[in-house]
Design a protein around this nucleic acid. Structure first.
Lengths: 165, 165
DNA sequence: CCCCACTCGATGCACCTGCATCAATCTTGA
DNA sequence: TCAAGATTGATGCAGGTGCATCGAGTGGGG
């Protein structure tokens, strides 16, 4: 029950922590320097923009983004404050609501993708061949699945979390 | 200057973000459930315990842990509050100080390693063969180096960031 | 010797997060 | 049909983080 990890596993763990925090930091920094809001805003805007009619229930958004409920709630607050989304009442379930992306929201999402994709290329793409990127993805997937419980229909949604071009 | 990332790179990026936050979450959760403080405390206690005489300048700690200065300062506050470390004045440089780990600190670090290593095994070790762990480390290293600037003498320190057994 | 630039560490502020809990509404099942 | 329980979303509070800035101390050039 308490087998110790191999030094190989431990070393992989350390690198996973250090490298992602480093790379994430770099990307967020680039976005910020370009005058854009945090990545979480982008993710939310993207999910909204891809929803059939540009609107989602907060609960959906929460599940897509894998962030806690209160976090979603406040993220939506901020988007609404900035005019990037609006809340709509949900007629079929009066507890709930819909969040709809605005034109400004769609536009910001697109502009952010320019800076965001450049950063991904700079900090990831340019360091790895496509083949190696695939290997890395594969290894990471083995860690990710069933950490807690899987909420997403396995791999497909994850693949589309960012526009592919 | 603005080449777009390949879909392979993008997909690796997404997995890197999602998987590490998931795995980190699981590990932190396990530690918390076992009644332990956050991982950052462990890291700091470990660095201190490994220092020649159990003490370090805050600046050193900061560089080892790759966290900002104010963050180090407040982390030390908390350790001191809990009696896990004490501040000592630094006679040669009166701006500075030394932080020394206490017996309680050393003991906590050891007890945490029990839970921590178990979590690493559970969420990483058991999902990957040693060979794959090595591959993963290798791929991650390619991303990590020279994201900003390298501050550590390349690989060796990183390897020893955790006790090896 | 002294001044200026730098390093070290602390801290006020704004904001963000996690946790617990709330009210409102929906659903279930007896 | 109605009460018990589940679900949706908001929020008060405590604590953590980033940013800017500060005061103390050092050290090197003139």
């Amino acid at each position: 029950m308490k087998r110790k990890p191999s030094t190989e596993a431990t070393s992989a763990w350390i690198r996973l922590m250090r490298v992602q925090s480093r790379v994430l930091d770099c990307v967020e920094q680039d976005l910020k320097k370009a005058g854009f809001p945090p990545l979480a805003w982008y993710d939310a805007l993207l999910e909204l923009s891809r929803a059939p009619s540009g609107e989602l229930r907060p609960v959906e958004l929460e599940r897509q983004m894998l962030i806690p409920q209160y976090s979603t709630s406040r993220l939506i607050d901020r988007l609404v404050d900035e005019g990037l989304a609006i809340r709509r009442e949900c007629k079929i379930d009066k507890r709930g609501q819909f969040v709809e992306i605005t034109e400004a929201g769609r536009e910001l999402q697109k502009r952010m993708w320019g800076a965001y994709s450049a950063a991904i290329e700079k900090y990831v793409g340019s360091k790895l061949s496509d083949a190696d990127a695939v290997k890395l993805s594969g290894l990471l997937d083995r860690l990710g699945c069933s950490c807690g419980e899987m909420k997403l229909p396995p791999a497909i949604n994850v693949n589309e979390t960012l526009p592919s071009r």
